[in-house]
Design a binder for these strands. Sequence first.
DNA 1: CCAAAAGTGTTTTTCGTACACCCATGT
DNA 2: ACATGGGTGTACGAAAAACACTTTTGG
Lengths: 209, 209
Amino acid sequence: MTFSYDYPHPAVTVDVVALRLQEIDLQVLLTRRDHQPYAGKWALPGSFVGIDEDLAIAAKRALQQKGALTGLSLTQIAAFGKPDRDPRERVISIAYLAILPPSAIEEGIGTWVTLGRACNLAFDHSIILKRAREVMLEKLDRLSWGLPFLPKEFTLLQAQSTFEALLDRSFDKRNFQKKLFDSCDLEDTGYVTSGGSHRPARLYRTVSA
Amino acid sequence: MTFSYDYPHPAVTVDVVALRLQEIDLQVLLTRRDHQPYAGKWALPGSFVGIDEDLAIAAKRALQQKGALTGLSLTQIAAFGKPDRDPRERVISIAYLAILPPSAIEEGIGTWVTLGRACNLAFDHSIILKRAREVMLEKLDRLSWGLPFLPKEFTLLQAQSTFEALLDRSFDKRNFQKKLFDSCDLEDTGYVTSGGSHRPARLYRTVSA
DNA sequence: CCAAAAGTGTTTTTCGTACACCCATGT
DNA sequence: ACATGGGTGTACGAAAAACACTTTTGG
């Protein structure tokens, strides 16, 4: 079956920069390409956009091909459309940035790779990735935007370590907590950590709103 | 002649939110639709993306169909892709924000309309326009981003009035000048205004870099 | 009782905002 | 000489950054 048009149509894809933070290691989800072009190279997970499919839904699907994701943070980054970015046909790609908690996608559609080691990607994916980092750094000015990197319940120190890793700088503990509570609207779960050989810490969760 | 594909392809367009400031009047360039759908309604200037055409080039072309534009500021806003945004076929649109100096496009592809009066537009263009305003307001935090609204040579008071109109607030003259010079890197042309019945003002230009 | 992380206010510095007067030109 | 916009520095207040000690638990 074929689909015909009066004038040429580009293909449209979504590509997703999925990030998570393992300890202090910021990782991006990559897949290895099986076929030409760029066979064997690493690439961002992506998918063609269904003819009746919303862009954000397509982005979720690109991550979801194995297993469901709940409540993930998805932000559109930009459209990439250089005429020669795919050697097969004209492809315009809408890039999304997805933030996942540390537990997400233990295995499935791809491999988590430390961000610094993700280079020499297929297509223009290195450019997309670079842009995603810039967008992330801009958005992180508002701490609340970074909360999806955290697990459902977390301590204040976990939160601080998370943002320190993301922004590659250190914070003063008290100033950080002030700023966090001012901008993020958290909720005390009533529970505390256990197991460490030291004083337990309160566990917080983000208010679903 | 027809173009055939193994699977359905959406159409891809660019839509441009072109803004200029006339005195204190922020205006957007609109065209009136001749044909269905939305015949008679106002719409953003736009165009289908040529199969080998870069997105930004297509955006320029959408403004340029009558006469050339030099050195215009063009920023990608976002991709809009709701499946039903065009009743004819699936159309994904990449929206751009263009900033023009007061002199640009005196006549041609469309009509300049005061931003506040631009409502009830065709397609989802009202949403695109709203988003463009948000993006503009965010970007204007950095004053340098607003310089394209100014003519090639301008006085400090012209600059101040421009930003006051854009941000709908007033500035203190001395604080504004400090901030402007700190963030914008301007150059004294050596010329001054003439004709007014008062002291002439120095003319500045932006450093091309 | 010691080690290790949790928790909690005050001071200092920095940045943004408010403010007032004299100057140069054209009429 | 006067009316009109052009040009310039300082003082105050709010917000961010720096800073140190006491508390709780497990070993």
